[in-house]
Computed example of a mutant assay.
Amino acid sequence: MSQDSMEIDLDTSLSYLLKQAHSVLRSALDTALRPLGMTVPQYACLELLAQRPGLSNSELARGAFVSRQSMNVLLQSLERERLVSRSEQPSAGRTLPVELTPLGRERLQAASAAASAVETQMRQRLNTTEQRQLRDLLASCIKALSDS
């Protein structure tokens, strides 16, 4: 088999297009969150805590797409900024519960608005049906790879 037959057409490769979309989205989110003094992983962590209270450090790390070690550092920085608080007593086992503070909820509200504006811009050229189809297709791709 020659090397030419193994080449990937980057213009039609789904994985390449998804990586490109991720890169552009991440850059837009970074730009939108920077004036708020927040990073994308910090925003993701605050959003996860607001929507799913009681998540463990490992669950937060998976949800924010960072390592457990990075999540621990991230939580320490959010705690120093008084955006989250952690109990000194574990709720179950060794897990220290993390909660949003009032300041954390306030900052999250501004960050959510900024992230929402980026998503609105991203889907502005898609009609409602296309948006639903894109969500369904991406969910199918995720499931196909998760089932492997």
Results as ranks from 00 to 15, higher is better:
29 L>V: 01
59 E>Q: 15
25 L>T: 11
14 L>R: 13
5 S>F: 12
73 V>D: 03
122 M>V: 14
101 T>H: 08
16 Y>G: 03
69 Q>H: 12
84 V>C: 03
45 C>L: 01
24 V>Y: 05
2 S>D: 13
88 E>D: 04
127 N>L: 08
41 P>N: 02
32 A>F: 10
26 R>T: 09
4 D>P: 04
141 C>R: 14
66 V>Y: 00
124 Q>Y: 04
115 A>M: 09
73 V>E: 05
67 S>N: 02
107 R>F: 05
59 E>N: 08
78 L>N: 04
69 Q>N: 13
88 E>G: 05
78 L>M: 10
63 G>Q: 03
145 L>G: 00
96 L>R: 09
91 S>P: 02
60 L>M: 06
118 V>Q: 02
23 S>Q: 15
82 R>P: 00
94 R>P: 02
73 V>I: 11
147 D>L: 14
111 A>S: 03
101 T>G: 08
9 D>G: 01
87 S>G: 06
137 L>Y: 06
91 S>M: 03
15 S>H: 05
52 R>L: 12
25 L>I: 01
138 L>I: 14
50 A>M: 03
64 A>V: 03
112 S>C: 13
27 S>T: 13
102 P>S: 08
68 R>C: 09
56 S>W: 04
19 K>T: 06
130 E>V: 06
67 S>Y: 02
139 A>R: 10
43 Y>P: 02
124 Q>W: 07
145 L>C: 07
8 I>Q: 09
146 S>Y: 14
62 R>Y: 08
142 I>E: 12
58 S>N: 09
90 P>N: 06
66 V>L: 01
53 P>Y: 05
5 S>R: 11
64 A>K: 00
10 L>Q: 10
135 R>L: 08
142 I>W: 09
49 L>G: 03
43 Y>G: 00
92 A>Y: 07
109 Q>M: 09
34 R>Q: 15
19 K>L: 10
74 L>Y: 03
139 A>M: 11
14 L>F: 14
34 R>C: 11
5 S>N: 10
28 A>C: 02
144 A>T: 13
16 Y>M: 13
122 M>T: 14
125 R>P: 00
140 S>Q: 13
33 L>M: 08
95 T>L: 00
94 R>N: 11
73 V>S: 09
135 R>W: 01
35 P>H: 10
128 T>C: 12
122 M>Q: 12
141 C>L: 15
96 L>K: 08
15 S>R: 11
122 M>G: 04
57 N>E: 05
3 Q>L: 08
105 R>H: 15
6 M>T: 12
